[in-house]
Amino acid sequence: MARAEWGLQGRGKWVCSYKKTTLIICFLNIAVALYFLRSLYASLYIYSGNVSRNIVMYTPDQLQKMEESIRIRKANKPAKLVKWVRKLEGEFSRGMAVVQFPQHVKQKITNEILQRLRSLNSSGTDIAHDISKKREAVESWRNEKLKEAKLALTDKTSNFTIPHEEAGMLVRALESDWAVLSEEIGLWIPVEVLNEEHDDKPEGELELEEEVLPGRPVPPECHGELHTDYDGAAVRWGLTHHKDSAADCCQACMDHARNAKEGEKKCNIWVYCPSEFGCHSHDIYEHKHQECWLKFAEKPRVNFKNRYPESYRNAHPSAPVIVPWVSGVVSA
């Protein structure tokens, strides 16, 4: 019996000491938390005091000198130069913002111009006169279409053949973006004619002189053909081979054939891109201005000539109406 009482008293003391231990641990945790909070507050106070002490206080004399410096900089600012630069940037941005015509609109414009050109009677001998007539016919069509577009734009209630939403694009394109639109639809009429007195040349060379190519004239042995793309195995890639003119491209082909080693394919076809806007092709590459392709073929064959077929343009919407390349087969 005495042992039992002692056991109960022992367990009571043990329970009592367990509670005390728990209270002591909680008290210590609270004390540690308060200590950390106090340390954090003290560090923030010290940081804010340092920031406030780092504020620079300028004297009135220093402030006056700074204001004078700002005034001098503003007075010496090249206002006229800035104005001219902004004006040039505005003109450049307007020039780059070319109207993007839908394909059916460009096709309609192309058909109208071709119909106007077909109505002309060609003399067949006086090339300069024929080109002048073509230029006048295109300019006459342009003025008539511009007048019609402006009327359709201002008079919304009248029944015009030009929809009102297309009239604004036409007015801008025919006035400020006419050169770019002409390039997109494949219209290329020369300003002047080279060697117009040589009427005894073959028909192929007369066709070459109907349009002006940059650089020196293409020699007769190059047999240059405008709006023509010859097929063949490339012996020199034009993507990394550029020439200043079609004549230089032909000369590169002849030099390649002359210097080719035994067993190598000798260049007998040259293909040149004269357009500043690049030339279309059905491959995956972007063909740029002055590309010069050197090719070889035992039996030269034409890929495209004059105009791209309608079926081809339907399959390739980005293709122009007229073939932009210039090419030829050199004399053996």
Rank of each mutant, 00 (worst) to 15 (best):
Y45K: 12
S39N: 12
N259A: 10
S245R: 05
A247N: 08
L63T: 07
K261R: 14
P324T: 02
E298D: 15
F296S: 04
S311Y: 03
C16S: 11
L63H: 05
P163F: 05
N268M: 01
N50E: 15
K77A: 12
R142S: 09
S176E: 10
V32I: 12
I25L: 08
L81A: 10
V56H: 11
T228H: 07
H198F: 14
K147M: 09
L88N: 05
F101P: 04
A75G: 04
R135G: 03
A332M: 06
K288C: 04
K74E: 15
K77S: 11
S132I: 02
S48T: 06
V218I: 14
D244I: 04
C292D: 02
W6C: 02
G238V: 00
G224Q: 01
Q62C: 03
M57Y: 14
L28F: 10
H129C: 04
W84H: 08
F304N: 05
K65T: 07
E298L: 13
R216H: 07
W14R: 15
R258S: 14
P202L: 12
V32Y: 06
H227T: 01
D244R: 06
L208R: 08
S122Y: 10
K299D: 11
C292N: 02
S275L: 08
A179F: 05
A97D: 15
I24M: 12
F101S: 03
V180R: 10
V271C: 01
R118F: 06
S245T: 12
A149T: 01
V171Y: 01
D61Q: 14
K19F: 15
S158Y: 08
L81S: 07
S327Q: 01
G204P: 00
V326E: 01
E175F: 00
S69G: 04
N111Q: 15
A246L: 03
G204A: 11
E68Q: 13
D255P: 00
E196F: 06
S158W: 04
A152C: 15
